[in-house]
Design a protein around this nucleic acid. Sequence first.
DNA 1: AGTTACATGTAAAACGTTACATGATTGT
DNA 2: ACAATCATGTAACGTTTTACATGTAACT
Lengths: 187, 187
Amino acid sequence: MLRYALLGFLNYHSLNGYDLKNVMEDSARNFWHADLSQIYKNLKTLQEQGMITSTLEMKEDRPDRRVYTITEAGRREFAEWLATPLTEITPIKEVLLLKIFFSAQAERISVLTQLRLQRELHRRNLQRYAEQTVSDIEKNIQRLGASLDDALFWDATRRAGVLYEEMYIQWLDETIARLETLSEGGT
Amino acid sequence: MLRYALLGFLNYHSLNGYDLKNVMEDSARNFWHADLSQIYKNLKTLQEQGMITSTLEMKEDRPDRRVYTITEAGRREFAEWLATPLTEITPIKEVLLLKIFFSAQAERISVLTQLRLQRELHRRNLQRYAEQTVSDIEKNIQRLGASLDDALFWDATRRAGVLYEEMYIQWLDETIARLETLSEGGT
DNA sequence: AGTTACATGTAAAACGTTACATGATTGT
DNA sequence: ACAATCATGTAACGTTTTACATGTAACT
C-alpha cells in the first residue's frame, strides 16, 4: 500500500526520501504513516520495477540527496490503483479497545486512569486537526505544486480526522461516566 | 499484541486454535482480528515461553484438537499488560482516505461510485453492531464462563463499533454531497 | 455435486519496526 | 553544551498475509 502513497506524492513533484517522509507526516498523518527506513526500502523496490527513476544531487555543505521522479509506467500503475474500487472495509486494530474488552479483570481505578489519559491524547489530536486550516493546505499545495482541486479532497481527509477524534472522545466520555457511576456504589 | 488477545481469552477458558479464532471473530471483530495460521504460530511461541500448556484431545469422527490452557506465568504477564497504560494513540491506516487524498486526479464519477460502495459496506457493518444485543453478549459469557462484569466492558467495545460506523457514514454522506454539488456545474 | 464446518499446521512472501552507522550545520 | 534538522542507508527482528497440504462429516 505504501507504494501507492509514494507514487501519489511523486506524481505531483519529484522528491527525495527524507522529504517524502515529511510531506506525508504533514499532510497524511491522520490516515497514513511510514517510517523512514521503510520508505527508503520501498523507493528502492519501485525503482527496480521501473516505476520511478532517481538522480543523485551532490551538495557541498549538506548531505547528498537522491531525488526520485515518477515514470510513465509509475503514473499508469498509480492511476489504475486510483480507479480500482475497494470492495472491503479497512479492518481496525485498536489496542485500547482490546484492553477494555478484558478490563473486567483489572482494577477499576487503573482502567479509569488509562481512559482519562487516552482522552487527553485524543483531545490534543483533535485540536491539531481542527486548527489545520485552509492556509496549511495551501502551503502543501505550493510545496507539491498541486491544484486547487486537490484542496477539496485534502480538506475532506482532514475533516475525517476531526470527526474521528470527536467520536473517540465522545466514546471515552460515555465509558468513563459509566465506570464512575458503578464505582460510587461498590469497590 | 495478538499474544495478549490470546492470553486474555484463555484466561477465561481453555480453547484450541480453531475455536479461539471463532470466539475472536464473534466478539472482537470490530477492533481486532487475526487469521488462523497467525494464531497457530503465536500459540506455539506462547507455549515455548511457558505462558500456556497444551493437551491433544483425540477424536474418532472429527480431527484431533490441541487444547491450550493458560499457566500462572501467563496470567501474570497478561495482568501486567492490562495494568500498563498506553501512552500513545493507535495510529490509523485507512486505505479509503489515502485514495481520497489523491482523488483530484481521478474521474469524479468513479470517486462517487467508490464512496457510495463504501457507504453500503459501512451501513451493513453498523446494522450488525446495532443488532448485536445483550443476548449475544450473554451467549459469549456462557461460552467463555465469564462474569456479568465482563458484559459491561464488552458492551462498551460494541458501542465503540456503533459510534465508529455512524461517524464514518456521516463523513461519507458529507463528502458525497460536496462532490455532487461540484459536479452539477462542471465536468 | 459443491460448499461449509471442523481441525492443524508449514512455507514463503510481504510488510513494518527498531537499532545501528555516519556526519555537518543550525538553533536554543 | 545539547538537541534538532538534514540525509541515506543496512541489518536484524517481528508481524501479517497468502498459498499449500490433508481429510472427514454434515448440510444444501
